[in-house]
């Protein structure tokens, strides 16, 4: 008998909250992006677990799309980081207070 789905869901919840904690605590934009990846992975794990628990392929298809969206998000996000770094020479989120109107 394989592992019950609840274990996976609790693990995914823990992974998601660790990612959210990192996003709240860290100030380096690059590390914040990595924390977003952690949260996306927690969601992916949840989708695959529900796919297995309900015997439905839809969960796996959504994970496939999440991977694509994550790749696009990282590309645009890192492009923004590079553009900001060119002006500020820093990757701290605190420095973006200059965006305040």
């Amino acid at each position: 008998m394989s592992i019950p789905g609840e274990w996976y869901l609790i693990l995914a919840a823990a992974l998601f909250t660790i990612g959210a904690l990192g996003l709240l605590l860290r100030r380096n934009v690059l590390v914040m992006f990595m924390c977003i990846e952690l949260m996306l992975n927690a969601a992916n794990l949840t989708f695959v677990t529900f796919s297995r628990m309900l015997g439905d392929i839809g969960g796996q298809v959504i994970v496939f799309f999440v991977l694509v969206v994550a790749a696009a998000e990282v590309v645009v996000g890192l492009g923004i980081v590079v553009a900001i770094f060119r002006r500020r020479a820093n990757t701290s989120a605190d420095d973006l207070h200059i965006l305040k109107g």
């Binding site: 789905g5 529900f50 309900l54 015997g55 439905d56 392929i57 839809g58 969960g59 298809v61």
Partner: peptide
Amino acid sequence: WATGAHAVAGPSH
């Protein structure tokens, strides 16, 4: 934990 209908979008296996 998991509620809902089984295999709405097609069976996983």
